[in-house]
Amino acid sequence: MIGQLPLDLPHRPSDAEEDFLAAPSNEQALALLRLWPDWPHKLLLLVGPEGAGKSHLGAIWARRAGARVVTASCLEIEALPELASAPALLVEDADRPPLREKELFHLINLAMERGVFLLVTARKNPDAWGLATKDLLSRLRRAPAVAIEQPDEAFLRVILGKLFHDRQIKVEPSLIDYLALRLERSFEAAQHIVSALDREGLARGRAVTRALAAELLAASPGLAAADDEDAAETDANDDDH
């Protein structure tokens, strides 16, 4: 029997404010963005790991502030004056190569001169970007920054449930519990395992079960939590019908 060909179709979850998953790991970031326009500074850095919800938070703020949205790697010198003519601006993925140091530095200067609110998102703090432009690094170091932390086990369960829901995959609650106990507690690990389960389920023409999850986790030990010894023994066949 020939399996289905898995199509790598884009999944676009809602970026509405009511669909944002609020938790202790992101409550400070959410509160500060909601505080706009009463920010302590016109420039704010939003830092968090891959998949942490930076784009979702940025979209919420951009709608509130009427901000233009641009990816940092797409910045061009000739376009900066027009960008800085907006009342607010969201620059996403500032630390993702290729770094546009000259363009970002000039954009920040223009925005500050014109009183434009500027939200910059990145995976890491500026000292870890590998910046060669000292003035840019100095400017970013002085800016207020708010971080999204990695999820705890309870929030990881919520994230997994939302990721499955976004892909319209129906799973048993026991599968969520199984993954939450064994996965590395990171947004990236949750995204990776849900994507892999979706892909393998389609390819094999079978439901997404705990047995399939056990198989994929065994094949990807890097996704497992460091303290997974207590969860190592499982009955992988009890829901594989």
Score class of each variant (00 low, 15 high):
Ile2Ser: 07
Gly3Ser: 05
Gln4Leu: 13
Leu5Pro: 00
Asp8Val: 13
Leu9Phe: 00
Pro10Met: 12
Pro13Gln: 08
Ser14Thr: 15
Asp15Phe: 14
Glu17Ser: 11
Ser25Pro: 05
Gln28Gly: 10
Gln28Glu: 13
Ala29Pro: 07
Leu32Ala: 09
Arg34Leu: 02
Trp36Glu: 04
Pro40Glu: 00
Leu46Cys: 08
Leu46Val: 14
Glu50Lys: 13
His56Ile: 13
Leu57Tyr: 11
Ala59Asn: 12
Trp61Ile: 01
Trp61Leu: 00
Trp61Glu: 02
Gly66Thr: 08
Arg68Thr: 01
Leu75Glu: 02
Leu75Ile: 10
Leu80Trp: 03
Leu80Pro: 00
Glu82Lys: 04
Ser85Gly: 10
Leu89Ser: 00
Leu90Glu: 00
Asp93Trp: 01
Asp93Gly: 03
Pro98Gly: 07
Leu99Phe: 02
Lys102Ile: 14
His106Glu: 13
Leu107Val: 04
Glu113Val: 07
Arg114Ile: 07
Arg114Phe: 01
Leu118Phe: 01
Leu119Ser: 04
Leu119Val: 02
Val120Gln: 12
Ala122His: 10
Pro126Cys: 02
Ala128Phe: 09
Trp129Glu: 03
Leu131Glu: 08
Asp135Gly: 01
Leu136Trp: 06
Leu137Asn: 11
Arg141Glu: 13
Arg142His: 03
Ala147Ile: 01
Glu149His: 12
Pro151Asn: 08
Glu153Ile: 14
Ala154Thr: 11
Phe155Cys: 07
Leu156Asn: 00
Val158Ala: 10
Gly161Trp: 00
Gly161Arg: 02
Gly161Cys: 04
Leu163Ser: 06
Phe164Thr: 09
Phe164Lys: 07
Arg167Ile: 07
Gln168Cys: 14
Ile169Val: 15
Val171His: 13
Pro173Lys: 03
Ser174Leu: 10
Leu179Thr: 01
Ala180Asp: 08
Phe187Asp: 03
Ala190Tyr: 06
His192Phe: 14
Ser195Val: 06
Ser195Lys: 14
Ala196Cys: 05
Ala196His: 00
Arg199Leu: 15
Glu200Pro: 00
Gly201Gln: 05
Gly205Pro: 05
Arg206Trp: 04
Val208Leu: 11
Ala211Thr: 05
Leu212Asn: 03
Leu216Thr: 02
Ala218Met: 06
Ala218Tyr: 07
Ala219Trp: 00
Pro221Gly: 02
Leu223Cys: 14
Leu223Gln: 01
Ala224Phe: 05
Asp227Leu: 12
Glu229Thr: 06
Ala232Pro: 07
Asp238Cys: 07
Asp239Cys: 07
Asp239Thr: 10
Asp240Trp: 02
